[in-house]
Nucleic acid binder design. Structure first.
Lengths: 180, 180
DNA sequence: TGCCGCATGTAACGTGTTACATGATTCC
DNA sequence: GGAATCATGTAACACGTTACATGCGGCA
């Protein structure tokens, strides 16, 4: 069984063959793609997927000492991915540093704390604008079965998340620093 | 500098002295406390905090081969914690298995996928009820500076998060299985 | 010629989970 | 006497990040 990152790689390859470098580029921006990884880990995982027969590659002449490897799913890889998709996800362990800081915020100066949340709020508002722009670029809502459905659905989730987060920041600022 | 778990331990101890066992109990339930850890890690981290002089313990006669150690913050530990609280959090890497599955959901049977989201929705609704019950047990909104403020503020965040999540699940179900 | 982007990999380290290991106290 | 709970710790492994290491191709 691949690791979760392994499935993330399979999911990315399901949309088209890619090099490890291109996979890295996809996984570096968390925008509407909720898993990240560095190239070192991706290369390591690709080798595991390779020995498990879930991906294969075509070697192409390219830059670097090792050339270029364009990876694609095998039929077994596609089957394993399809099966994984509908299995219930493992309960995720929440680990959120800002919430942890909030838990201990009664020790701090409220005005200083409010400043922290103002910075966070600005970040969320930026992302909301970015996501809304992306959403507008869809002419219509894709149907399940279309590859774009995954993009649209994760974007919806991301937007909703950012709005929830922004609302929380506003509430915190209001509570911490009602004067401003 | 302590690890983030180290700060989580300091934050918990700021509200009162505890044994490693009691800390484990607190960190096992993610309810309104967004950091989790197992006892093995907590004991390891406590020893680091100890050598850094951020916590101290009183040995008490108790169960087990080693007896019982009641840990409490030192004044330095309290100072380090207070300073950390208002520092900007590191950007968190999103890792969400359900969103990843959603990204690849175009490969799966929509009805099966909808079932997955129905199960998730039920979990979120359960937590919402739980959190609302907890929220109602506050007679009034605590002010910043009161220790309970941290509890209330993280609870607010948790509730908001669960509602966002539930809304997303409903949207997904509607899209995947409009007939039902 | 020199820099940037493409492209692959290894090694050391930090963090987190699971399993192993021990044993006193309390309640039935 | 036995089981559950309290209580602490170690070891092996998995996962993730950062830093190290190499070198081709294209462009200025």
């Amino acid at each position: 069984m691949p690791s979760t990152l392994g499935f993330a790689i399979l999911a990315a390859l399901a949309k088209g063959a890619k090099t490890g470098y291109e996979l890295t580029a996809v996984m570096n921006r968390p925008v509407s793609y909720f898993w990240t990884a560095r190239h070192s880990q991706i290369h390591a995982d690709l080798q595991k997927l390779l020995t498990d027969g879930l991906v294969r590659f075509e070697a192409e002449h390219g830059p670097g000492p090792q050339g270029k490897k364009v990876y694609h799913l095998t039929s077994e890889g596609r089957a394993v991915l399809r099966e994984w998709v509908t299995e219930p996800p493992r309960a995720r362990t929440e680990r959120d540093e800002l919430v942890l800081k909030t838990f201990a915020s009664w020790l701090a100066d409220p005005a200083e704390m409010a400043e922290l949340f103002r910075v966070q709020l600005a970040l969320h508002e930026e992302r909301i604008a970015h996501y809304e722009h992306q959403q507008a670029s869809f002419e219509r809502t894709p149907d399940p079965g279309e590859p774009a459905f995954g993009n649209y659905a994760t974007l919806w989730c991301g937007l909703s998340y950012e709005r929830h987060r922004a609302a929380w920041c506003r509430w915190m600022i209001e509570r911490l620093d009602p004067a401003a």
